[in-house]
Simulated assay, not measured.
Amino acid sequence: MFGFLQRGQSITRIAFDPPKPAPDRAGLALVLIVRNEARHAAEWARFHALAGVSRFYVYDNGCTDGTIEVLRAALGEALVVMPWNQKLRDGRGHEIHNQVLAYAHATRNFGGRHRWLSYLDVDEFLVPKQADSLPQALAHLGGCRCISLPWHMFGRAGHMQPPAGGVLENYTRRNPDPMSNTRGLRNFKMIVDPCHVTAIKVHAIETDGQTDTCNDRGESFSLTARETRAFYSADHIQLNHYYTRSDAELRAKIARGPNLTTPDADHLRRVLRKVENIEAGEVEDRAALDYLARVTGGRTAGFPAGTPVTG
């Protein structure tokens, strides 16, 4: 069923036959692979449940800090947990990217139940800009099978230690240019029609054997043209990437290492360079807080503990 293609000494693209659509498929589901994010998991889960996500497929990459229990308390029956603590290689020793493997597994096994599927990390938030929910924000995109959303990269906001409260209220400054050519700043996550997905990478998805993708206005571009400024739109859905959080959490993130085995010095150098670029010329961005204020009647303070789960 799966076909693997290699890049260097790792397998970062997985091809497969798309799932068949269930007759009653509907709604938006999220796929998350996670390891030890108990501090922030509830806020992430409640935000996306509030925004209309109906199912969460969580791949447990060896959590030991109570992350899964936090998610279960926040999401209840909307949560599906898969154990996923592994590093797999093919017969030639090429490492299979565990995150890509999780995305492929979720798409093939669960995608047929849903109209839309997206793949996030706990530091990534899908923010409706005009509509009151993500399904409403996607309603005009029925002709698109793959929607690419550019990262909006948020930095440390001066926090050396984790501040009281949630990520959304404490980190409101980001790099001003989501389409910057600066290495490490411009990238995308996707929302797809899972019943047309034929291959997956972390930041690019093929549908019906093609790499064309839409922006959130529904305009179609080639994968190469996705990199141009003409592609940019966050009119309907903005993808916030809280890459650093506090400096202490950034250092812990570096210590955990990347999804693929990488020499420690290379990983450290790459992350610190990216952080320096993120924090160059930051602008204020309150889109996530504006959304919460709109749909909760202004109850943004204390959101992680105080907002009921819906959806």
Rank of each mutant, 00 (worst) to 15 (best):
G155N: 05
G155K: 01
R156G: 00
R156A: 07
A157G: 03
A157W: 01
H159K: 01
H159W: 08
M160T: 15
M160D: 13
Q161L: 15
P162D: 11
P163R: 06
P163G: 04
P163E: 07
P163K: 03
A164M: 13
G166C: 03
L168E: 00
L168T: 00
Y171E: 00
T172G: 08
T172P: 02
R173E: 12
R173L: 04
R174D: 00
N175K: 02
N175H: 15
P176T: 07
P176G: 07
P176K: 08
D177S: 07
P178N: 08
M179K: 09
M179R: 04
M179Y: 08
M179T: 13
S180I: 08
N181K: 13
N181T: 15
T182Q: 11
T182K: 06
T182V: 15
R183L: 14
R183G: 10
G184F: 02
L185H: 02
L185E: 01
L185N: 02
N187K: 11
N187Q: 15
F188Q: 02
F188K: 05
F188A: 03
K189N: 05
K189T: 05
M190S: 15
M190P: 04
V192G: 02
V192R: 04
V192L: 10
V192W: 02
D193H: 04
P194Q: 05
P194N: 10
P194M: 07
C195N: 13
C195T: 15
H196T: 15
H196I: 04
H196P: 03
V197A: 09
T198I: 10
T198C: 06
A199N: 06
I200C: 05
I200F: 02
K201G: 14
K201R: 14
V202C: 10
H203F: 10
H203S: 12
H203A: 05
A204T: 14
I205S: 00
I205A: 01
I205Y: 00
E206P: 06
E206R: 13
T207S: 10
D208I: 05
D208E: 13
G209I: 07
T211M: 14
T211F: 09
D212F: 10
D212G: 14
D212K: 09
T213E: 09
T213C: 15
C214L: 11
C214H: 08
N215I: 06
N215M: 04
N215P: 03
N215K: 10
D216M: 07
D216N: 10
G218L: 09
G218F: 08
S220E: 11
S220L: 12
S220A: 14
S220W: 08
F221K: 11
F221E: 07
F221W: 13
F221C: 11
L223Q: 12
T224L: 10
A225F: 10
T228H: 09
R229P: 07
R229F: 07
R229D: 15
A230N: 11
F231M: 05
F231N: 03
Y232C: 08
Y232G: 10
Y232V: 08
Y232I: 07
Y232A: 11
S233M: 07
S233K: 04
A234H: 11
A234S: 13
D235H: 12
H236Y: 09
H236A: 14
I237D: 01
N240D: 04
N240R: 01
N240H: 12
H241D: 01
Y242T: 00
Y243V: 08
Y243M: 12
Y243F: 14
T244Y: 01
T244K: 01
R245N: 02
S246H: 04
S246P: 06
S246T: 04
